[in-house]
Design a protein around this nucleic acid. Structure first.
Lengths: 159, 159
DNA sequence: GCTGAAACAGTTTGTTG
DNA sequence: CAACAAACTGTTTCAGC
């Protein structure tokens, strides 16, 4: 991974439809070497996939709720069970195991508070949760799928 | 938006490189009408863009931190200022205005705790924040850019 | 409004400097 | 390694149903 790879990734994180020839032009490479670099980063799994990003409001999931869960079950089996349950809910778009006060945190997207309540009831019917608290977002000020590349390890082999 | 549109979006949210002909085959449509539907959803802004999704660990941002901010400044001007500051930090990938206890919540991605500390110092040097608390994620169990389509309004004009 | 085919653009591969 | 060009694959447009 060198500076050119980073530039390529920056461009692809913004717009994955950009022709390889144009990417090449922008990073100072012709089509073939640029294409090979992209190919390699896909093989290496640096680029995981290319996806379409939708407008949440336009598909009627304009409300985000952060759900914090505390539990007494601090074991691997329970975590797997919980993960499996969450996997079945497409409205849970992010799910983290936390350190500190809260044990798990998830981001849930729904149309409105009513739909959140329905989700909540369905969730607690599927798994026994000790302590759940919900925080509603009044607005999404920033959301990006683009990761910062400032920390990426630059190997820059020979030059 | 009808059931076919939803199927198309489901496929494109998973893999935006799929040829239109193949999408058509999967939803029971030939290339042209399928292409027109996709085109229309892009014009309408339902599909916002197509992006490359990277592996966080492979670009050295394997650690997620949720940062909660409470403030006394409950006015629009301050919010704009705060937003503008946050926009400058690529490590902040999500930023929400919250209801309840916490006023703002952001998700920050960094390589390690040291980098988080550097981020934190830089942040508080740019804007005066009353009460900041950080919660570290020990692991990302689920992360998807795919929104649930179960809530999307089905218009289904004539049929 | 769909199908099928033709025209076009972009990708992918191979040959050469 | 990069450039160039040929072959291929997918996209976009258009005529006919």
């Amino acid at each position: 991974m060198d500076k050119i790879d980073r530039k390529i990734l920056t461009l692809l994180q913004k717009d994955a439809t950009m022709p390889v020839a144009e990417i090449g032009r922008k990073v100072g490479l012709s089509t073939t070497p640029c294409w090979r670099r992209i190919q390699k980063m896909e093989e290496d799994g640096v680029i995981q996939r290319r996806v379409a990003v939708l407008d949440p409001a336009k598909v009627n999931v304009g409300v985000t709720v952060f759900v914090s869960v505390k539990t007494n079950e601090h074991n691997d089996a329970w975590m797997r069970k919980f993960s499996a349950v969450i996997d079945e809910f497409p409205e849970v778009v992010e799910f983290y195991r936390m350190s500190g006060e809260v044990d798990y945190l998830m981001r849930v997207v729904v149309p409105d508070i009513g739909a959140y309540d329905a989700f909540y009831k369905k969730l607690i019917s599927k798994i026994n949760l000790t302590d759940v608290s919900s925080a509603f977002a009044m607005g999404q000020i920033k959301y990006t799928t683009a990761l910062p590349l400032d920390f990426a390890i630059v190997v820059d082999d020979d030059k």
